[in-house]
């Protein structure tokens, strides 16, 4: 079974975030980075599938050159090789362009299963996996919290998380794409032997032109206008008078604001 798992490197969860000078993004200079949380669960799910069915696990990462630490961690945990989409053209892509780039790299591999995390912890669009499935003409299931495979590995049975505490089990034929929800499993630790072994595993670095993509094809369809911290605002108006007067005034205010 050939399994691709997409892993994004994101700022660490409890890092202190500061907005950069032009308010276009957070200041990344003092941040440390880690694998996106739900992607780490997706990797574990991929490694478990490989342990059950054999085959190989390929890590696919789109990110700057220093994403190599996150890629190496994936290889250390047991992935066999990696594809690193690394090019200045790949900076600040929207979800469509990210999906397009990943699809261009992953498509030719013709994997049986593609895993992504549910969403990235930084941008949080939750679209990359789903868009990629459409681009590659694959069936997909999102927000998956349990995954089973048939003995021959040709059918996936997945449990999806719906709203209001509802769940849905669905079956789908491979090849397919699944977006994984955090908590589906217990990710393993990278062993020290695995970390040393990761140095010998191939990492295929691809640029946009390697994938036949140019800047035009990757032009974002949306952009972040400005980033700002929530502004604290408080306006207090004291209603004076006896209870009846205050109540009437309050109702008038609430009606006026469209609250009631």
């Amino acid at each position: 079974m050939k399994i691709v798992v997409c892993i994004k490197q994101v700022p660490r969860r409890d890092d202190l975030l500061r907005i950069n000078a032009d308010k276009s993004w957070i200041d990344e200079s003092s941040l440390s980075f880690e694998a996106n949380e739900s992607d780490a669960y997706a990797l574990e799910e991929a490694l478990r599938l490989k342990e059950k069915h054999g085959g190989e696990v390929i890590v696919a990462t789109l990110g700057p050159s220093d994403a190599s630490k996150t890629i190496k961690e994936g290889l250390a945990k047991g992935a066999d090789r990696a594809i690193h989409l690394c090019d200045s053209t790949f900076e600040k892509l929207d979800a469509v362009a990210t999906a397009k780039s990943l699809a261009a790299a992953i498509g030719p591999e013709a994997p049986d299963v593609i895993f992504t995390g549910l969403q990235s912890d930084d941008l949080g669009y939750g679209q990359t996996g789903v868009l990629m499935a459409e681009m590659l003409d694959l069936p997909h299931a999102s927000i998956v919290i349990a995954l089973e495979t048939s003995e021959d590995g040709k059918t996936l049975r997945v449990k999806r998380e719906l709203e209001n505490g509802w769940f849905q089990w669905i079956s789908m034929a491979t090849p397919a794409l699944v977006t994984i929800q955090s908590g589906i499993n217990k990710p393993r630790y990278a062993s020290l032997k695995g970390i040393m072994g990761a140095k010998k595993k191939p990492v295929d670095v691809r640029t946009a032109s390697d994938l036949g993509l140019n800047a035009d094809a990757l032009t974002p369809r949306e952009a972040i206008g400005s980033l700002y911290l929530p502004v604290r605002e408080k306006q207090t108006e004291m209603l004076e008078g006896d209870a009846e007067t205050v109540a009437a005034a309050l109702v008038a205010r609430l009606r006026g604001n469209g609250v009631i």
Binding site: K69, E73, Y189, L192, I195, M196
Partner: peptide, 14 residues
């Protein structure tokens, strides 16, 4: 090095 950081981080998490 990356390996040194990964080794530390993995054991730290453990």
């Amino acid at each position: 090095s990356e390996e040194e950081k990964l080794a530390r981080d993995s054991v730290r998490q453990y």
